[in-house]
Amino acid sequence: MTTTRISGAPRPTAGALRLIEGRSGSPTSVDVSSYVTAMARHCPFLAPSVSRELTGWTVYEIASADRFAVEAELFHAGVQAAEWIRPLKSRPHGTLTCENLVLLGSVPHIGHLELMRRPYWALRNLYAPVGVLFGKFCAGRWETDGFGRQIPPSPFSFLPVRAAITSRDPRFLANTPETARTLAAATDDGRDVFARIPCNWKAVQAQATDLALPGNDFWLIDGRTLVVHHFSGEGDVVDREVTTAPGTVMLCASAFEAVWERAVPHEDFRLT
């Protein structure tokens, strides 16, 4: 398996996240036990993953007031976690592998939800085609599961990274059809997910700098009505809003067209 070669070159943003505790099934810097017990009622794979010591927690603390640097290091940590998981998926019980990146500390005037948003979006889209799924949970934020049941709020913010269950996960992502289709067809053929773009946050951001992308997934109906979806960290819909405001509709329509123009036609796509 080729997977992605993570560059060992110095990163100018290194140090923006301080490693508090390396991967552990029972970290001491944060208390995960009661939360894991509560979450096991909502995720049928969590208990068997924990019992086989396949669930791990890596704890980071923000050590910079520079938002860009923190996002860059969170993105880098996500890449490391995903690439660690990829070769394990083919091993016995490998699909139960889950790595959780805990974020402590703060950046002035910016909440964790906003700090995680852009790295999460990029990582989710980069790794879904190879069957690695990212989530996003913010401390104290209530979520719902795929059956509409309320999930207890996490005591800390974190990005879960796990092997996708391609026979199950797409069903719970019906409201994000692009991601659902990608996961349903996911195959890890050893490709380098950064074959077309350098493996650094600045380059990833540059690919979308001039795109006015809406902050939420949406449906545009007949070019006049916008249905905006708000999701939990697991990709479940927690709210929908409908608007016909011309400015908002125009923004979303133009964003869709701009992204579509950059897409590679299916028949022209080649692995490199």
Rank of each mutant, 00 (worst) to 15 (best):
M1K: 05
R5W: 14
R5K: 11
G8C: 08
P10C: 04
P12D: 10
T13M: 02
L17M: 09
L19E: 15
I20Y: 05
I20L: 09
G25Y: 08
S26V: 14
P27D: 03
T28C: 08
V32G: 01
V32I: 15
S33V: 15
S34T: 15
V36W: 14
M39F: 15
A40H: 05
P44A: 07
L46H: 15
T55N: 12
T55A: 12
W57N: 01
W57D: 04
T58N: 04
Y60F: 15
A63H: 06
R67P: 00
A69S: 11
E71T: 07
A72D: 02
A72P: 01
E73W: 14
L74F: 09
F75K: 00
A77D: 00
A81D: 08
E83D: 04
R86L: 10
H93D: 12
G94T: 08
L96C: 01
T97M: 07
T97P: 09
L101M: 05
V107W: 06
P108E: 04
R118F: 13
P119T: 04
P119G: 02
A122D: 12
L123R: 05
L123E: 07
N125V: 10
L126E: 04
Y127Q: 02
A128Q: 09
L133D: 08
F134P: 10
G135P: 09
K136V: 10
C138Q: 12
A139I: 08
E143G: 03
D145Q: 00
G146N: 07
G148D: 02
R149D: 14
P153N: 02
P153T: 03
P155C: 03
P155D: 03
P160M: 00
V161P: 10
A163R: 00
D169Q: 01
R171Y: 10
F172Q: 08
F172C: 06
L173Q: 03
N175Q: 12
T176Q: 14
P177C: 05
L183Q: 06
D188K: 07
D189C: 07
D192M: 01
V193L: 03
R196C: 09
I197A: 06
P198C: 02
N200A: 00
K202W: 15
Q205M: 15
A206M: 07
L220E: 01
R224K: 07
V227R: 10
V227M: 06
V227T: 08
V228Y: 00
H230I: 08
E234A: 09
V237A: 00
V238P: 05
V238F: 10
D239W: 13
E241Y: 14
E241V: 14
V242P: 07
T243F: 02
T243D: 02
A245I: 11
P246W: 01
M250G: 02
C252I: 05
S254G: 02
P265G: 00
D268Y: 10
D268H: 12
L271H: 11
T272S: 12
